[in-house]
C-alpha cells in the first residue's frame, strides 16, 4: 500500500543553525502519530517543512503520491492537508463563520465573472459551503457565535475554531501543533475525546505535536522523539518512556525536571 505522506531525509538550517537533520517519517492512511521532544527540538520546523512554510535544504516530501517538496503552501493544503498553529493564528477581525469558510477556500470553484454577476452557481456553492461550515461549527459547539468576530472567542474556543477551520476542507492529513496548549485538565480530556472521534469520523491521518504526555499516550499509536533536530526514537509511546536516550533528552539536560514530570504522568 502506498503511504499517504512520505518524508525522506529532510534537513533545514536557520542561518547556520541546524534546526532539523535527516528527518524521516512515513504516515499511512489512518495513522495517529505523535511528535515529541524538548523545547527547540525542531518539532514545529517539521510541520513548517511539511506544510510548505519553509523549503527543506535537502530531502523529499511525497504526499498522496505526488512530490510536493517545491509546492507552495496553498497548493499543498488544497491537495488535502490542513494544520493548526502552536500560537493560534485565526483571522481575528473576521467572523467565526468566515474563518471556517476560509478553511474551504480551495473548494469554491465559481469564477470571477460568476462573483461579479452573482449567478445561480455562485449562490449554490455559497449556500452549500456555508451550510457545511455551520454544521462544522455546531460540531465544535461554536454555532452560537457564528457571526461574532473570532477575536471575541475564549482561548479554548479559539483552539476549537482553528481545528474546525482545518477540518472543513475534509483533509486527508491533519497536522496539529500543540492542540492542548493552555488548556486545563477538563478541556484537555474533552479535546482528546473529540480528536479520537474526529480521527474515526473523518478517516483522518493525524500528526500531533504535544507536550502533555497524557494526550500523546492516550491518542497516539506511534511517537517520534526529536532532540536537537535529530530523531532519537521512533516506536510505540510506552517504549519511548523507558528509552534511555529519550529520558536523557528530557531529564538529563534540563535540570528543573519539568518535562521529566510530564513524561512520567500517565
Amino acid at each position: 500500500m502506498m503511504a499517504l505522506l512520505e518524508v525522506t531525509n529532510i534537513s533545514h538550517t536557520f542561518g547556520g543553525l541546524q534546526a532539523l537533520a535527516d528527518f524521516n517519517v512515513t504516515l499511512n492512511d489512518g495513522d495517529l502519530v505523535g511528535l515529541i521532544g524538548p523545547n527547540g527540538a525542531g518539532k514545529t520546523t517539521v510541520f513548517n517543512l511539511i506544510s510548505g512554510v519553509y523549503r527543506p535544504d535537502q530531502g523529499r516530501i511525497v504526499f498522496a503520491g505526488q512530490d510536493i517538496t517545491l509546492w507552495p503552501s496553498y497548493r499543498r493544503m488544497a491537495a488535502g492537508m490542513s494544520r493548526t498553529f502552536q500560537n493560534i493564528r485565526l483571522f481575528k477581525d473576521m467572523s467565526v463563520l468566515d474563518n471556517v469558510r476560509l478553511g474551504a477556500f480551495a473548494h469554491y470553484t465559481y469564477s470571477f465573472w460568476q462573483i461579479v454577476g452573482r449567478t445561480a452557481s455562485f449562490h449554490l456553492q455559497e449556500r452549500r459551503l456555508t451550510q457545511e461550515a455551520l454544521a462544522m461549527l455546531a460540531r465544535f459547539g461554536l454555532a452560537g457565535s457564528a457571526q461574532a468576530p473570532a477575536r471575541n472567542l475564549s482561548y479554548g474556543e479559539q483552539r476549537r475554531l482553528e481545528i474546525a477551520r482545518a477540518l472543513i476542507s475534509r483533509p486527508k492529513l491533519l497536522l496539529l501543533d500543540e492542540p492542548a496548549a493552555g488548556m486545563n485538565q477538563a478541556e484537555t480530556l474533552e479535546l482528546v475525546a473529540l480528536l479520537r472521534d474526529l480521527h474515526r469520523e473523518f478517516a483522518l491521518t493525524i500528526m500531533l505535536i504535544e507536550h502533555h504526555m497524557g494526550v500523546v499516550l492516550d491518542l497516539c499509536q506511534r511517537v517520534q522523539v526529536l532532540d536537537f533536530g535529530s530523531t532519537i526514537f521512533a516506536g510505540n509511546p510506552q517504549e519511548a518512556q523507558q528509552h534511555p536516550q529519550v529520558l536523557e533528552a528530557y531529564l538529563g539536560k534540563e535540570e528543573n525536571g519539568e518535562h521529566g514530570h510530564a513524561i512520567a504522568e500517565p
Binding site: 506544510s51 510548505g52 512554510v53 507552495p72 503552501s73 496553498y74 497548493r75 493544503m77 488544497a78 490542513s82 494544520r83 498553529f85 493564528r89 485565526l90 483571522f91 481575528k92 477581525d93 473576521m94 476560509l102 478553511g103 474551504a104 477556500f105 480551495a106 477551520r165 482545518a166 476542507s169
Partner: peptide, 12 residues
C-alpha cells in the same frame, strides 16, 4: 489578517 495563515488554509 494573516497572510501566512491564509496560505496555510489553501488561499491562493
Amino acid at each position: 489578517e494573516d497572510e501566512l495563515a491564509a496560505n496555510l488554509v489553501s488561499v491562493n
